[in-house]
Simulated scan of single mutants.
Amino acid sequence: MEAMKLLPKGKDYLWGGTRLREEYNKKLDINPLAETWECSVHPDGVSIVANGKNAGKSLSEVIERHPEYLGSKIESKELPILVKFIDAKKDLSVQVHPTDEYARIHENQNGKTEMWYVMDADENASLIYGFEHPVTEDVLKRSVSDGTLDKHLHRTKIKKGDVYYVPAGTVHGIGAGTLIAEIQESSNVTYRVYDYDRTDKNGNKRELHFDKAIDVMDMSIVPDITQKPKLIHCYPGCSRQILCRCKYFEVEKIEVLHGCSFSVLDTSFQVLLCLSGDGGLEIETNRPVRFKKGDCIFLPSGIGRCHLLGEAELLKIRC
């Protein structure tokens, strides 16, 4: 059992930019590079192991052979989450994701609850989260048709370090000039409500999914998205802060100044995503693994005591 650095799958969605290649060392021949699926077994984009005895194998193949790597808490035999970077050079579509119950019936996939950590944002960057006031299907249909949907949507300015929890059913849209780390259920189901009448490289408008979006959308007033203060625990050599905890995942931010230790028990795998800096990961039974900004590491359940060295900011994810 060993820590596995992962190579991502890239996505060239029309709203993407170049920052993941230029600033996060993503060697992917895709333009634009909108997303990198850093830790994924979803068939639309599977991560590849980059080091050790499993180098060159897909993460899904490794987990299929070793389902115990997921941990005793995981009921399914597939990785239940997907971890990605998003570079939004332009606005994403106004969209919504279904619940597990709806998606499993209609899409044969999981639903999609997600969390965003804002890694960087332009001065006037914003995102859409919910509605300004309660709406109805008729109101939405008319506003999409006549291009006035924006007046019903709740838009909020964002800045580096912001955290947003986006449960299934929440209408949303990531705004231009935003760089985000996203942790979500393992799913690729998105229902577009509005896409600004844009066309793809072939001149075709992207498909909208209004009827399904209405089926799953919470059309009540905007939820409370005020960023509540989160307790930061300081230790010699590092600080740690819980960013999000829900039924699907827990996300913790670790700022390593010199060193930081934690344990990976047999209850759940863990994932490290390096947002900045560099360092090394030491595990008792393994050779040290070097990491840098943009790297993602999968830690099998039960791997034991881990020690981070260096100077870096990371997200640590577990189920």
Rank of each mutant, 00 (worst) to 15 (best):
D122G: 12
N124C: 10
N124D: 15
A125F: 09
A125E: 08
S126V: 06
I128N: 03
I128L: 08
Y129P: 05
G130P: 02
F131S: 08
F131T: 08
E132R: 14
V135W: 11
T136G: 08
T136A: 02
E137P: 01
E137Y: 07
V139P: 01
L140I: 15
S143W: 00
S143C: 07
S143N: 12
V144A: 07
V144M: 02
S145T: 09
D146V: 03
D146C: 09
K151H: 06
H152N: 09
H152L: 13
H154P: 04
H154D: 11
H154Q: 06
T156I: 12
K159N: 03
K160Q: 12
D162Q: 04
Y165C: 02
P167I: 00
G169P: 04
V171C: 10
V171M: 07
H172N: 02
H172C: 02
G177R: 06
T178E: 05
I180F: 06
A181G: 06
E185N: 12
E185P: 03
S186L: 03
S186T: 14
S187F: 10
S187V: 10
N188C: 09
T190A: 11
T190P: 11
Y191E: 09
R192D: 12
Y194G: 08
D195F: 13
Y196T: 08
Y196V: 11
D197F: 13
D197S: 14
R198L: 08
R198C: 11
T199Q: 12
D200L: 08
N202G: 14
G203R: 05
K205I: 11
R206S: 10
R206N: 09
R206G: 09
L208Y: 03
H209I: 08
